[in-house]
Design a protein around this nucleic acid. Structure first.
Length: 670
RNA sequence: GGGCUCGUGGCGCAGUUGGUUUAGCGCGCCUGCCUGUCACGCAGGAGGUCGCGGGUUCAAGUCCCGUCGGGCCCGCCA
């Protein structure tokens, strides 16, 4: 066989159906498993699209059968042969034709009929989950026992009904057919893979990453890659339809000291100077608005040299968007449509728009953070006023020093043991809570070591406000507002997961709006931008800029889904006066402004249209659609938590010559 | 920068208060047999510097210190 004909392919491994029976097919794929019965060899051939069983029978082709003997897992094959219906296996039993009506009418099988299966052998006992499919009118039926994953062929013949063992594999979409191989060509052999190429494997992540090329062959991973592609494609199409131009911005740009640590790239022409990789194309996309582009988008790789988390990578992808002559409503509107398109087209997940808008302060007070998971209740309740006069010093002391007392009611928490509560106390301690007060509500009333510090009215008001019922436990944290929010917000999430209060099929989108423009930095005794320097303020609160900057609300918005921030954006400042004031409030000196943002300020004065933008995070969106809890699962070649690529070993040492060219001296032993 | 946790044949794990000669088990792998399997079956077999370095001890997979690597988190991430 020539090389050319052995690469030919008529179908993918997920393509063939019963309707193809009788035709010839030629497939390429990897060997998922080989089952050698001595006389006949079955191979499950796998590619991106699925699996087809191919059969090697010496009676069909002796050479192909002999060659198949040497085939092992993950060998790369080309096979050609006849597609055929999977024939019935051995005759199991014969029975009266009377049962035919149950088959023809597609009714439930009678217990008499069923008992004949189990009498034959316990392994043939039929489950309740049965599908009957009529293959030929009044002649041939295929029964599928879905639960036990078995099939039976039943033929109506002169002697009654003959029941044969079925050879259809109900787990495969191609399970009704197989390819009887007439010609095999082994395109490549393979070492035994370090782990099986199939879903639901138990392998540590570092092994998967080292052999990512094997890992990515697994059907779940292929599905993720495909969904990610579809998400990007849906986004491109949607943006195009709405008049956005896709424009690339530089990867090598200036370092900006704000925000995250930059990833730096040394310059060869300018020894001692560095480019930085973009944390986001923020300044360039605004410059594009000043350039009259009107509507821009980009699928942009962003880099932030900060420690990673389960939902954070060193490099990640944003659908970067900016539009001129637009305010909050326009951006939110476009983004809602985009989310709907991506989730529906790529993920098959229906999305209801418009999304709810929740003010930042409400989110903090109800959920303890600005990315609430609203798929379950257990919201935080403020009890500061109730506890003001109680005798529990932990509470009163926190309150008198400007703190809060808040609580959550945990359904069924009466069951919690001393150890459970101790573990939860340790849990909130990671958020600097000094303790976790609790009161159980039993059928006899309030139960806890601290009940004595409260009068009945205080306890009852607390219970009523938190909506706690008998059988619940109430948890309280008293501390600075930030600690209370962190501790209870995370406790809420932790218990929500632990107690299975979350409906995993739900997708709860909501906007967080009305953020403050500035945040007061205690240590440095000055304001800091809550988001970035170019975020605009709302018109109503703009007058506070001079008198009380802390009161100014920004036109920033975040889109949150199921506890993840998936988009972040704002209306930008488009005039120099306001921008100047922001710099003043932040105490950035004019020389510094000139040095760092000179070109930007300059551009601002040359006719900048009002503009606004947003940046949806592609990785997290795909993560949500795939129901994954780890961002590495949706990135083809992710880095480990320590920033290593376990496949390529990056980062690595470079030669002395390279360093010399860049005028770089390395100060560590390598 | 810090906390927790894991590291034992290719993979997943067990290995007790340090002490039984040859460090077990399952899967995978190899050889043979097997014509309807799809987690095929049956019989036999190979495969281990217990992450690495140092220490304590008569004796270390097991205890201590350091180090490397994986994971989760705090800080950080405008």
């Amino acid at each position: 066989m020539s090389q050319e004909s052995s690469l030919k392919r008529t179908h993918y491994c997920g393509d063939l159906r019963l309707s193809d029976a009788g035709s010839t097919a030629q497939l390429n794929g990897w060997v998922r498993r080989r089952r050698d019965h001595g006389g006949v060899i079955f191979i499950d051939l796998r590619d991106r699209t699925g699996i087809t069983q191919v059969v090697f029978d010496p009676q069909i082709d002796e050479d192909a059968h002999a060659l198949a003997d040497s085939v092992r897992s993950e060998y790369v094959l080309n096979v050609s042969g006849i597609v055929r219906e999977r024939a019935p296996g051995e005759l199991l039993f014969n029975t009266e034709a009377a049962y035919q009506s149950e088959l023809t009418d597609n009714t439930a099988l009678s217990s008499e009929f069923r008992s004949q299966f189990s009498e034959l052998d316990a392994k043939y006992t039929l489950s309740e989950d049965i599908e009957i499919c009529e293959r030929e009118n009044d002649k041939h039926w295929l029964i599928t026992d879905v639960e036990n994953n078995r099939t039976y062929d039943i033929f109506s013949e002169e002697n009654g009904l003959n029941v044969y063992q079925g050879t259809v594999n109900p787990e495969l979409v191609t399970g009704e057919i197989e390819v009887a191989v007439e010609s095999l060509s082994i395109l490549n052999s393979a070492k035994t893979p370090p782990f099986p190429v199939e879903d639901d494997i138990e392998v540590s992540e570092d092994i998967r990453m080292r052999y990512r090329f094997v890992d990515l062959r697994r059907p779940v991973m292929q599905k993720t890659l495909e969904m990610r592609h579809k998400a990007a494609l849906a986004a491109r199409n949607y943006m195009n339809e709405h008049g956005f131009l896709e424009i690339e911005t530089p990867i090598l740009m200036n370092s900006t000291p704000e925000g995250a640590r930059d990833v730096l790239v040394p310059s060869r022409y300018y020894p001692g100077k560095f480019y930085a990789l973009p944390q986001s194309p923020q300044q360039f996309k605004q410059i594009l608005m000043m350039s009259g582009v009107d509507r821009y988008f980009q699928i942009a790789r962003c880099f932030r040299d900060e420690d990673t988390r389960a939902d954070r990578q060193l490099e990640f992808t944003q659908l970067d968007i900016e539009m001129s002559f637009a305010g909050v409503d326009e951006v939110l509107d476009v983004t809602e449509g985009l989310m709907k398109r991506i989730f529906e087209d790529a993920g098959g997940i229906p999305v209801q728009t418009p999304f709810l808008r929740l003010p930042y302060h409400d989110s903090i007070s109800r959920f303890g953070n600005d990315k609430p998971d609203t798929r379950f209740g257990m919201e935080l309740t403020d009890l500061s006023d109730v506890m003001e006069d109680c005798d529990f010093q932990v509470f009163t002391r926190a309150l008198s020093s400007g703190g809060q007392v808040k609580g959550i009611a945990v359904p069924g928490g009466e069951e919690f043991s001393r150890k459970d509560i101790e573990d939860l106390t340790d849990f909130v301690a990671t958020y600097r809570a000094k303790g976790l007060a609790w009161i159980k509500i039993t059928s006899e009333g309030f139960s806890s070591g601290i009940v004595k510090f409260f009068n009945p009215e205080q306890l009852e008001t607390a219970q009523e406000r938190m909506g706690a019922k008998p059988g619940d436990i109430m948890f309280f944290v008293a501390d600075r507002p930030k600690v209370v929010a962190d501790a209870l917000g995370n406790l809420r999430l932790h218990l929500g997961h632990k107690l299975n209060l979350i409906d995993e099929t739900k997708y709860n989108f909501l906007w967080i709006v009305d953020y403050p423009l500035f945040e007061w930095n205690e240590e440095q005794n000055r304001f800091e931008p809550f988001h970035h320097l170019f975020t605009g303020a709302t018109e109503e609160t703009l007058p506070h800029l001079d008198s009380d900057p802390g009161k100014v609300q920004s036109q920033h918005y975040d889109l949150v889904c199921n506890g993840y921030e998936i988009c972040s954006g704002s209306v930008r400042i488009h005039n120099w006066d306001v921008q100047q004031k922001i710099f003043d409030i932040l105490k950035i000196k004019p020389e510094e402004v000139e040095n760092r943002f000179g070109y930007f300020i300059d551009a601002l004065e040359y006719g900048t249209p009002p503009h606004a933008g947003i940046a949806p995070g592609l990785d997290r969106i795909v993560m949500l659609m795939r129901n994954e809890e780890n961002i590495r699962e949706v990135i083809a070649f992710p880095k480990s938590q320590q920033g290593l690529c376990l496949l390529t070993q990056a980062p690595s040492n470079v030669s002395e010559e390279q360093l010399e060219e860049l005028s770089i001296r390395v100060d560590v032993d390598t």
